[in-house]
Structure formats: structure tokens, C-alpha cells
Simulated scan of single mutants.
Amino acid sequence: MTDRPTSPWPLPLPPGEEPPIPPLSVWSTGQRDPAAQLRNSGCVPGTDADTDRIPPAVAAYAIATHTRPGDLVLDPDCGAGTVLTEALRAGRHALGLTARNRWWTLARANITAAKTAGAWRDGSVLDARPKVLATIRAAGLVGRVGLVLTALRTTPDEPTDRAPSPDRDPDSAIAELAATLTYCEPLLRSGGHLVVVARPRRHPDGSLVDLTTPLIAAARAAGLAPVERCVALTAELRGSRLVNRASLAERRAAARARAAGTPTALTAHHEVLVFQLAHDAELADAAAVDIPWSTGDQVIRPAVNGVKYPGWRRAA
């Protein structure tokens, strides 16, 4: 994690004044181990193969915090579909996209399992890449999505009969996600949120990769403003003590690092960044410090599917 985002704050600041740090909060989302979370969510066998998945407890917390019943939750790169399952279980509509056949099959099975267990909201997963959201096929979604919730994915999708390849370079994964954020920005309703979840990555020397700074920069380039930076625990919180739930692979990697003379701590969290439409954040900040804001001022966003619209007047 970084101490301070480098991107500018939406409101103009007096000369020499530093932009504020997005508020930091801790989510107690590691009280159950990963296998128990998948069981409790009714996920089908094989879901755990998606190592970049958003843990069900993290997805459930984000959905409960940033949506209302009946809202539409979108995961533009949904993997095995844990976000979709939790959205349906919470009484939200769910839409996911993935171009990976393996994940599409699992995500569809998880949606079916959630509906069989009693979820009655609409849920679907499309065999498509995120760029389809920038086409006429997504025209009906403009201004309607209450929450975009997605993960930074660096694990390559490999056939099951081959040994897994090393993680992709985080820079290329962030560049791909940056394009996805651009596709998603016009779909958010006024007051909606976009949440990115990233599990920590390490450099070859064992130090943590700074994911926060480039993710905030990518979001700002897409017309989004950071409003919160969170730590979603993957370790159980027992009083004042953390009980780590690291996987066997992570523990072996830490043991190898110690043997090589570079002690490495086991990670106990996922990084979570929360964004809003930039003009929504500006209005909220202006209201917070009692700055008058003319109702005649409209923020006209770039044309989407040939239609221009005033962003701050989008339907709630």
C-alpha cells in the first residue's frame, strides 16, 4: 500500500495545500476461511480455482455498503462469479462478463445455484470482453449501474492440463483494467460506486508492489474520483490478534524467502479502492464544506453510443 495517492483531488486547492488522503477503513472480512466462505455462499465445486476471485465476504461487504436492494451490480471481468452470487443473495440484480470459457461455465453454474437456493433477482453472465460495454449492446445500461465491483486480475487463464504460468506483469494487468474502467464509467448511475479489489503482489525481492498509485491514476483518467481506500482482511480478527489464513502455496513461498535470507511476511488483506463519478465527488465535497454549487452548472460527459447527457442529472 502507498501512504498517499499521487493523483490530484477533484476540487481546486489553495496554493501549497496537499490533496487529502482518501479515508482508510478496515473491513473485518476474514472471519471465515476461504473454503467456508465458498460453502456458505453456495458456490459450486471448482470456484476455488479462480485465485483472483473476490472473496465472498469482501464482495458481500462491498455490496451491502454501496448498494440498495434492487440495484444492478456489474462485474466486467467476473471470473468464477463470486460477485454475482453475492449480489443475488443480497437481493440485487447481477451482470457479469468473461471471455474465458472455464470461468463462464463456473459463473453460470454459480448463478444457477444461487437462484435454486432462493435468489429471485435477475442474474446473468455474458461470454464477452469488457470492451463490449462501450458498444451499442450496452446502451441500455448507461446510467443504470449502482455498483461496479471487480478485481485486478494478473493470473493467466491456463488449461487445466498444463502447469500454471507465472503471474502477468502487474503493469499490463493495470493497463487492461484501466481500459475497463473507461468502459464502465458511463454506466454508473449518479451516486453509484466503482470498487476495485486487488490482492497484494510482491516484487522478486519480496517487497510489495505499489498497486494503489497506478490504480488511482487509471481511475482518474476514466473520469472517476477516489473516495475511500480500504483494507479488506483475509485473516481472522480475534480481539487484538490476527490469525492468518494464508494458503499452503503462500506459506511455502514465505518459507523459501526466509531460507534465501529475505524474510517475507504473509499477507493478511486485500487492497480495496472505492471510486465515484468525478462530478459526484465534487458535489459531495462542495456540500461537505458548504461551497455553493449552481444548479445551472452541468457536467456534459463525452457522447456514449452517440448520446450526450448531463452526468450529474443521470437517473438515480
Rank of each mutant, 00 (worst) to 15 (best):
R168E: 13
L95P: 04
N40L: 14
D77A: 13
V243D: 11
P34Y: 02
D280H: 14
A315N: 12
V195H: 00
V44L: 06
T295Y: 04
A57G: 03
R32T: 11
D3Y: 07
G91S: 03
R68L: 08
L187W: 01
R313H: 09
L233Q: 04
A278T: 12
R168V: 11
T262M: 06
G46M: 04
I21N: 13
T154M: 06
E271D: 15
A173C: 07
A35S: 11
H66D: 07
G81Q: 06
R251E: 11
M1Y: 14
T150D: 05
P226Y: 10
V142M: 13
G306C: 08
D75Q: 08
R252W: 03
P10T: 07
L126A: 11
T6G: 14
E86S: 01
E158I: 15
R241F: 10
R258P: 00
K308T: 14
R313Q: 13
D50S: 11
A64S: 15
F275P: 01
A80W: 01
A287F: 06
R162G: 00
L283S: 06
N305R: 03
I136S: 13
P204M: 10
A246E: 07
T47M: 07
T267K: 09
T116Y: 07
A107G: 07
V243I: 12
D280K: 04
A49F: 08
G96E: 05
L133D: 00
I54E: 02
P130E: 03
T105V: 09
D77N: 09
A90R: 09
N101Q: 14
E236S: 15
